[in-house]
Design a protein around this nucleic acid. Structure first.
Lengths: 342, 342
DNA sequence: AGCTCGAAGTTATACGTAAAACCTCAGGTG
DNA sequence: CACCTGAGGTTTTACGTATAACTTCGAGCT
């Protein structure tokens, strides 16, 4: 009666399954590994499967990894998970990974604060591959060093040492936004740009400039800001206070900045969109939470993650992943309208 | 000259380090494991450390896990990462984990869509422990089954089988919000509640009810809504259209719902806060992006993650973690004000 | 009959680490 | 001098899996 403690529940091993099925451990491994066509009879295989089910056996992944030298784990390097876009990218990547019995571990690259830790130290397991956002610039060199398959998200095609690439047609998105505003009649623009030095933002700036350059009589001023509402508001307030004719439309690199721009407008007594049009980018939840709702560009964030993981799996299987960029599309909402008559 | 391929870079093992240092593999393990006081001379230890550095040796975690039966990996179960609150919880947990050479792997519990997968299948590695949000109700039974140390975040103290608990003083937060509105003079309330059946929301509802019950002449109507802006707006529009005297303040379970409530007010031609006060909860980025900015309750999300991980580490070390709940505090912004005179 | 051959397994081994058990030897002790 | 002791190691083993190499046996062929 004084059997104080259970002698430990002890997860069953493949050897336990073998014993229960009356076969050797190797046979269990063959059956469960799927490589038994013609090596094990159907009857035996069935017995093994039954025993597996019966004992609730689950292979020890550490042992498997040790044996195979592969871990079925990928590292996702993103700037910050609190950015809804990257949370969605993770969600997509994790979904595809799960389907292929793969795991995803995160490395949110440190945003200046804290020690710039080694991405691979943070990833506890050894890794089979890496998916990285180009916004996580600080970690990129370390990633290049380890010779792991590297899938880049939304990155410069000129970058080298990349096994596959998943790009969004960001330039097209910015073109669509700019064309939309041009069609409405706007000619004087402010481009509220992210201060982050990353390819994806360089592309945005380029697209705005190139689109406007093709239209005579247009002007644009570019102002950088950190990626938060307050910074967006302050930069906008400052820019609108500048002398000379006021812009009639603000093109923002991000919905967060657009929210800031709207706040600035309100503080200055300008109505959006009557006095000033504002456009965002990303179509975050934020875009439909503010008033007026933001005209913005919707990005298939989950698809980016899905494709990234799919590409990585292809590369690991030896097939080079097919390229091609994902389309984005303009969503016109209340924050954009014709310029004021004056 | 035709040495076609590098014979594989082959990560160095502890045996390689041993060879380089002129000792046995066991000695390397002793030195690096830190258990060498009096087993290895300082000179030898130094040689080993030098060789480790030299070869860039990093222990194979799969092998270590296999040997030790522990993985230094925790599972964090949250409802969805796209919810900024949980992204911040993750950030906090991951930071503490990193300090202790621990890893965190995520299981965003499926929100109805997709197959309700086994949390442990998703966690690729074996786990040393689990930290779970009580909002991830669907996964809880499975978690209880595995006899892993379980740390619950913001959960019912009556729940059993929990090794430690990190709670926010949610009730106090709701009390503060309600008191704030009472002080401003409000008497007729609408409580826009999350439709999610979870302890944390039950507490919010209870706190509102109890606080108002103590004040004669007050009334409150509770309306449930799903956790997104549109649902919040629709529920609010519907509730405000009801016959009888209109509430002068809406207490929301979440900033997202509050944003929806504000939009509803605007659609109905009511000004916030002049005609209607609205309060949120969580202090997400959203709260300062909308106009007017939301009066809300700020929650130390990162701290929740940090404490959760700290508690788990304590439990794994044998010490029962100290309890105690984290304080929250009211942030008064523009969305609340005195009730209209009429 | 002697032979090969394929089906259906089994035995043995390696992956890299941690740690228990063992070994060696110089110096101190009765 | 025989004996113990402890410092400073080394040898060995086990963790659970996947797979290469081997065994066994009955059927089919010449």
């Amino acid at each position: 009666m004084t059997s104080a403690s259970q002698p430990a529940p002890a997860r069953p091993t493949s050897r336990d399954v073998a014993r229960a099925a009356g076969v050797s451990q190797a046979t269990v491994s063959l059956v469960l590994g799927g490589k038994w066509r013609g090596r094990v009879s159907e009857a035996t295989a069935e017995r093994v499967r039954a025993a597996t089910q019966d004992l609730g056996y689950r292979p020890n992944l550490a042992a498997r990894s040790l044996r195979l030298g592969r871990t079925r784990t990928a590292l996702l390097v993103v700037p910050a998970l609190t950015n809804e876009f990257f949370a969605r990218v993770y969600t997509g990547a994790a979904a595809v990974a799960a389907e292929h019995d793969f795991g995803v571990v995160l490395y949110p690259s440190p945003d200046g604060t804290g020690p710039a830790r080694d991405p691979f130290a943070s990833a506890r397991a050894a890794l089979d591959g890496v998916i990285a956002s180009s916004m996580a610039a600080d970690a990129l060199d370390a990633l290049r060093g380890a010779d792991l398959p590297l899938v880049m998200l939304d990155s410069d095609p000129a970058d080298t040492g990349v096994a596959a690439r998943v790009n969004l047609d960001i330039a097209d998105g910015m073109r669509q936004v700019t064309d939309h505003l041009l069609t409405l009649g706007h000619r004087r623009f402010l481009h509220l740009a992210s201060a982050i030095d990353s390819w994806t933002f360089a592309v945005r700036a380029g697209a705005v400039r190139d689109t406007l350059r093709a239209v005579p009589g247009t002007s644009v001023r570019t102002v950088p800001a950190a990626l938060d509402v307050r910074a967006g508001r302050e930069a906008t307030e400052h820019a609108l206070a500048a002398p000379g004719p006021r812009p009639t439309a603000i093109i923002c690199d991000d919905d967060i900045l657009a929210a800031g721009a709207c706040k600035a407008a309100r503080r200055l007594g300008l109505r959006v969109p009557d006095d000033l049009s504002v456009t965002g980018f990303d179509d975050l939840a934020l875009a439909t939470a503010v008033e007026p709702e933001l005209t913005t560009v919707q990005l298939p964030a989950e698809q980016v993650g899905e494709r990234g993981m799919t590409a990585l799996l292809s590369v690991l299987d030896g097939c080079p992943a097919e390229p091609g960029s994902l389309p984005v599309h303009l969503v016109v909402r209340g924050s954009s309208g014709p310029p004021p008559r004056s």
